[in-house]
Design a protein around this nucleic acid. Structure first.
Length: 491
RNA sequence: CGGGGCGUAGCGUAGUCCGGUAUCGCGCCUGGUUUGGGACCAGGAGGUCGUCAGUUCAAAUCUGGCCGCCCCGACCA
């Protein structure tokens, strides 16, 4: 394994791929388009899950689990939904294998053909709404606020670790409501949860907005999203929350008796974030030395490396370290003490930098004499010598600073790469020369949006919520427009 | 599905044009010296060269088929 990482400047895409592999987050599996998430990467995902799961529960949701398989007929019930997903579905057609008669190995047993094929879920609206029919009779059964943690499969033509894999992990919330207004409030509430998570936990600033009709989820009335900017100026959709109207209730005949005793179709939402967030995390903060993790999501926040000669000295150092470790842990800081004798300090320094551990503490004989430690922060690569006394308070403070600094840095970067364009020429020049978000007027038609996409590869990422209204003309058609929207090339 | 590249030890590779029994680095194992930014010395283990067939005295190398993966596009979270 080479020690030097490809630089972001040199080849951003290659830098990302190498980083994911070298930081031990994930690797390609034997199955095309599918990844193995390695323990270190999975530990980050578990942190994300824990934080999100708590946020969901704090907003009144409960977890449940629905099947991996969906009968094919369910898909045809909601017309636009099937249209959106049909091209990327994995299908189970048989349920048994047998030994080939010519002894050449195992083959599909053609006599074990399913009467109805099963689709491996690309998303669970259909199986869930089919189930909800049996759960909802009255307004008293509503709202139904359910989330599931699951894996889904979308047979994408081109995949990239975390950003787009054939199978991925996610959570999908599916809620049912008595009124449209209540469902819209839910949709917006969960968008806020996602935005808070992105900003406060992942240290990634996001723009909340709604998707245009072209970009809307298949089967939704309105799709809300959070959009983040990666260091190369490309946009990444980090989470979506959909107002589904009564589309799925009608498709699956889910009715309830309202207070007036009248039958009405149930109103729905669905919302999800996936392991794609891991990709967002990597691409937002990391540098040419490796991963940079926000303290709130790092598998461990502090690593302590002893520098010693001989076992006796190690024992002396360990005594001090274990006390510090205990004090830090009492403050809720996660600490790894790496006293392995099999690797040298320099090796460990490089390794933990590559893995993005927020704070490294080194302690040697010199420090024992002086009552000090060397503290290095990953985000700025700065080192300072601190007194051991009350180290837990200093480190706790430092971790907060790092968390905040990462967010501010990402925000500054985004602002520096956000532009206004008033003509199509200017728009194209910006995308070509200095990729980023381009705020531009658009006439509101799918036709103009489509043409711009074909000619520049840029799409409308979203129409920001509470967008400033201003008169202007569409950069493409010259027709009047009332607001600027966010254009960018996207992952 | 179009374009490009690749498949040789755990990883990364040389060798392929011009056929002669596989190179180098990292990693791994043993012993020793080391340890404040990816240590050094000595010794050692590890390979049906993606796969199947063909040509040949002889194939990693030539010919044909097949399989797989990666990258760039179209599609998408």
């Amino acid at each position: 394994m080479s020690k030097e990482l490809t630089t972001r400047e040199g080849n951003y895409s290659e830098w990302y791929n190498e980083l994911v592999a070298k930081a031990d987050l994930a690797e390609h599996s034997a199955v095309k388009g599918c990844m193995v998430i390695k323990p270190y990467g999975y530990a980050i995902w578990e942190k994300m899950q824990a934080a999100l799961d708590k946020m969901f529960k704090d907003t009144g949701h409960v977890n449940a689990y629905f099947p991996l398989f969906i009968p094919k007929s369910f898909f045809s019930k909601e017309a636009s939904h099937v249209q959106g997903f049909a091209k990327e579905c994995a299908v189970v057609t048989h349920y048994r294998l047998k030994n080939a008669e010519d002894g050449s190995g195992i083959v599909v047993d053609e006599t074990a053909k399913l009467d109805e094929e099963l689709i491996i879920r690309p998303t669970s609206e259909t199986i869930i709404w089919n189930t909800y029919r049996g759960w909802i009779q009255s307004y008293r059964d509503l709202p139904l606020l359910i989330n599931q943690w699951a894996n889904v499969v979308r047979w994408e033509m081109r995949t990239r670790l975390f950003l787009r894999t054939t199978e991925f992990l996610w959570q999908e919330g599916h809620t049912a409501h008595a009124t449209a207004a209540e469902a819209v409030i839910e949709t917006e509430k969960m968008l806020d949860v996602y935005a808070d998570f992105a900003e406060q936990w992942m240290a990634i600033p996001v723009i909340k907005g709604i998707k245009t009709a072209n970009e809307r989820f298949a089967g939704a009335i309105e799709t809300y999203c959070i959009e983040a900017m990666m260091q190369d100026g490309k946009a990444l959709q980090a989470g979506t929350s959909h107002f589904l109207g009564q589309n799925f209730a009608k498709a699956f005949d889910v009715k309830f008796a309202n207070k007036e005793g009248k039958q009405d179709f149930v109103w729905a939402t669905s919302w999800g974030v996936s392991t794609r967030l891991m990709g967002a995390l990597v691409m937002s903060h990391s540098d040419d030395k490796g991963l940079v993790l926000p303290p709130k999501l790092a598998p461990f926040q502090v690593v302590i490396v002893p520098i010693y000669k001989g076992e006796e000295q190690l024992a002396q150092i360990s005594e001090v370290v274990l006390k510090m470790k205990k004090a830090m842990e009492a403050k809720g800081i996660s600490v790894k003490y790496d006293d392995r004798d099999t690797q040298r300090p320099g090796w460990k320094f490089a390794e933990y930098e590559l893995k993005g551990v927020p704070v490294r503490i080194a302690i040697g004989a010199r420090d024992l004499e002086n009552g000090t430690v060397e503290v290095a922060r990953r985000d700025t690569l700065e080192k300072e010598t601190l007194q051991q006394a009350d180290i837990e308070t200093k480190i706790a403070h430092l971790l907060e600073q790092i968390q905040d600094n990462l967010y501010q840095k990402a925000r500054t970067m985004r602002e520096a790469k956000t532009y206004k364009a008033d003509t199509y020429e200017e728009f194209k020049r910006i995308l070509e020369e200095t990729p980023g978000f381009v705020m531009a007027h658009w006439d509101g038609t799918p036709e103009s949006e489509q043409k711009i996409k074909e000619e520049t590869k840029a799409t409308i990422r979203c129409i920001p919520l509470n967008n400033k209204q201003e008169a202007g003309i569409c950069i493409y058609s010259g027709k009047p427009s009332t607001q600027r929207v966010v254009f960018a090339k996207a992952y």
